[in-house]
Design a protein around this nucleic acid. Structure first.
Lengths: 150, 150
DNA sequence: ACCTCTCTGACCTTTACTGACCTATGTTCA
DNA sequence: TGAACATAGGTCAGTAAAGGTCAGAGAGGT
């Protein structure tokens, strides 16, 4: 950790922890972190995505702004609500990352889940892999959550 | 003993004795020990495996890093002692029953494990099934035990 | 001699960051 | 009114800065 992008992300998330909507000026923020304005876009594009529960709104020209909204993703009660029927590797990755970020699971648990997925899917026929991955992950999450139903 | 890999391992373990999570830069560490960066990967792959109770996380690109987490130390060994390399369905069944009886896991956890095994092994080629079943169960047990730490 | 563990280097992928150029919006004044 | 100017943010390609992978050479022990 410690890249500029990480710092900017932290700063914004800190603001978002207080209100769940924050407005900023790209130029100002860039000046604050001594970088080019497009760096701000980079941070927004890579860190504040819809997948992770954020929405971006912006306006150009005089009095322009960028607003970040945090979508109030209420916690799904059922694991099944969060894990689709099928999952590609990348989707599973993204899901775990999101869950960890939202504090649903610990970072270590996400890592362990990744490992289990990886190990277990060795030698599985490619056409059923996404299906099995989904069921497996659902199972693992159930264990983490200790039941919650299925 | 006395190989470079051993030295690097010692160094890292020393750091891990203080905090149970350590972050490093591959290039820096390599420079420190006057070796090529991929040597660090070798050490991580051979010494800091999940079997031995470690998890690795990393990021590439500018500001990249490698993080080593230590999960509970004795746990992986104990699980490896209990779960064989391969398991038939019946053997897995029996093992779960025994573990539940001995109070190692709860009855509900055994049920859930059965469910996960069943679901996950759908469509797996028969010749690798016992292998995957074993790894999967080991992973599940690791998760069960791991969960108790949080 | 052979086997296993170490170690290296060439090549690859991912992530971060910058700068040039583009588009949209507001303001001023002939 | 509308043309020119000022002030925002957007896009994208290119470069730099990490870590990952893998085949094969080297070293040490039996």
């Amino acid at each position: 950790m410690g890249s500029l992008a990480d710092l900017i992300e932290q700063y914004l998330q800190q603001l978002l922890a207080q209100a769940n909507q924050v407005e900023l000026q790209r130029r100002e923020l860039a000046k604050m972190f001594r970088c080019v304005p497009s760096q701000i876009n980079y941070v927004l594009e890579t860190r504040f995505t819809v997948d992770r529960g954020y929405l971006i709104e912006s306006r150009r020209g005089g009095g322009g702004f960028i607003r970040i909204y945090r979508i109030q993703k209420e916690l799904p009660r059922r694991i099944a609500d969060v894990v689709p029927e099928q999952l590609t590797r990348e989707e599973a990755e993204e899901l775990l990352e999101t869950l960890a970020e939202q504090g649903e699971i610990h970072e270590e648990q996400a890592l362990l889940a990744r490992y289990i997925l990886e190990q277990s899917l060795q030698g599985v026929a490619p056409e059923v892999e996404p299906l099995i991955r989904a069921k497996l992950l659902a199972g693992i999450l159930m264990v983490y959550k200790d039941r919650d139903n299925y």
